[in-house]
Design a protein around this nucleic acid. Structure first.
Lengths: 109, 109
DNA sequence: AATAACCGGTTTGTGATGCAAACCTATTTC
DNA sequence: GAAATAGGTTTGCATCACAAACCGGTTATT
């Protein structure tokens, strides 16, 4: 019944935020991606991408490896197992909530 | 190509916020609902529900009518035409983004 | 060999936001 | 007539997203 909407309200905001939802969704389609690739993909500025990644890393949803390719620094981002599960689950929640809500009827006044 | 993810990043945050997504989604299934009904449905406190409604009203996505039922004040909330369109559109966006992203493949490095 | 421009980011500053708690006015209950 | 309840609004604070400044190194430019 109304558990539907309470569940909606309680969606994990760390993942729900649009930029991070985009990052996580993109990562879920590949094993890893580098910083610049993600930046171009999402259209975020470096600064914002950097801080979103930091939050996802703090939450242990992604792992970040920094190394040098030749003389250039390179940051490689990948989903952790927990992250892969979390993003899949988030989309499932949204999908089922949307579906269930579409056939929900308010209890007659 | 990457437009997918840029579109995700650009989701309307006014509607995307979980509590408001729940409010709008619930409203989309009925013509109108009163304050307490929405409060029980979403589990929000009065204060937070009130300020979320104020934001939605400012954006002209909902209309709020206050009247008295007998001696008690009563606040009736309904979607505006724009609001009805906006919430439908938001779910469509999410749905199609999720679907498209699931078959997206990163361009080979 | 300076210097300017670029690459790949991180840190900082700030305005907006979500939430909880306090408050308010009127009514009902004890 | 005091206390609880209904139906909200306002206030205060802590967090957050975004832009802009910064930074260490590298590659042109002169």
């Amino acid at each position: 019944m109304s558990a539907l909407f309470e569940e909606l309200v309680a969606l994990d905001k760390l993942i729900h935020e649009p930029a991070r939802l985009a990052i996580m969704t993109a990562l879920s389609a590949c094993q890893s991606a580098d910083f610049l690739f993600l930046q171009r993909l999402t259209g975020l500025t470096k600064g914002n991408l950097s801080s979103h990644l930091a939050k996802l890393e703090d939450a242990e949803l992604i792992t970040i490896e920094k190394k040098f390719i030749g003389k250039k620094p390179n940051t490689l981002v990948s989903l952790s197992p927990a992250g892969r599960e979390a993003i899949a689950r988030h989309w499932q929640q949204l999908e089922s909530l949307r579906h269930n809500a579409s056939q929900w009827r308010p209890p007659e006044a």
